[in-house]
Design a protein around this nucleic acid. Structure first.
Lengths: 121, 121
DNA sequence: TATGGAAATGAAAATCATTTTCATTTGTGG
DNA sequence: CCACAAATGAAAATGATTTTCATTTCCATA
């Protein structure tokens, strides 16, 4: 096995919320860091095994990663102009956690997005 | 555009719970039905567009389909085995609506999924 | 019944994320 | 300095899904 390349974790942190392996790779490229795509994949897998990052799937099936335990927020997005507002998700957090527990689930996480038309559109 | 081939829907119904496109295809093959994989994919997509079937992702990223009820619900999905529980989303509905209104958004909708490890995994 | 165009079909090629292979480089203890 | 294990990454392999495109099936109408 191989251990995680620390620059991968650092880049994922810097990326903010979720990022796919491809995105992490591209970000590192743009920053001039020399790394192979293979190493990015291996490092992310390793981080998932060590429970340092969470992995989810986008609608298109691409795997997206984020730091575990990182307090996350949600987005309110305008369908028309794309304006985005960051939302505190306290209520959702509790809801998700409760629903998960009610059904005997552990390591409960969630995704949520709100969309609509902003006042200008 | 193309419409859904009715034999695909019929096969998905017969399959019981979730089935991937590949599985639906193989099932039809075994039953002696002549159909192309392409048509299976197109039909499933079409059924998803028409909100006749739901689509989710397995851990390995493969898309799985199943008939969905008419009511708007959310899913609690096991990251490991894919077991899915349908959740009543009353709390989320209100939350999304309120947050949207607070920020002057109209036509507010939302997406939400909860995931974790079920009691068996 | 013939006919022309639209929709459906599916084989094969293309795409794209991800994994595997394997040869090379790097690091480390002796 | 040496030997050996771990790390690296380019390129090939994999596998689901999508696209292309030529052909077939439908169907309404002349």
């Amino acid at each position: 096995m191989s251990r995680s390349n620390p620059r991968v974790l650092s880049t994922l942190e810097r990326a903010g919320g979720f990022a796919s392996a491809q995105e992490v790779y591209q970000l590192m490229q743009r920053e001039g860091q020399s790394i192979g795509l293979t190493t990015v994949y291996r490092s992310l897998q390793s981080l998932v095994n060590d429970k340092i990052v969470d992995v989810l799937r986008r609608d298109d099936g691409e795997a997206i990663y984020r730091l575990c335990g990182e307090t996350h927020h949600h987005h309110l997005v305008c369908k028309s102009c794309g304006e985005t507002v960051e939302i505190e998700g306290g209520a959702i957090e509790k809801w998700a956690l409760n629903v998960g527990k009610e059904h005997g689930f552990r390591e409960v996480g969630h995704t949520a997005e709100i969309f609509g038309l902003c006042s200008k559109c």
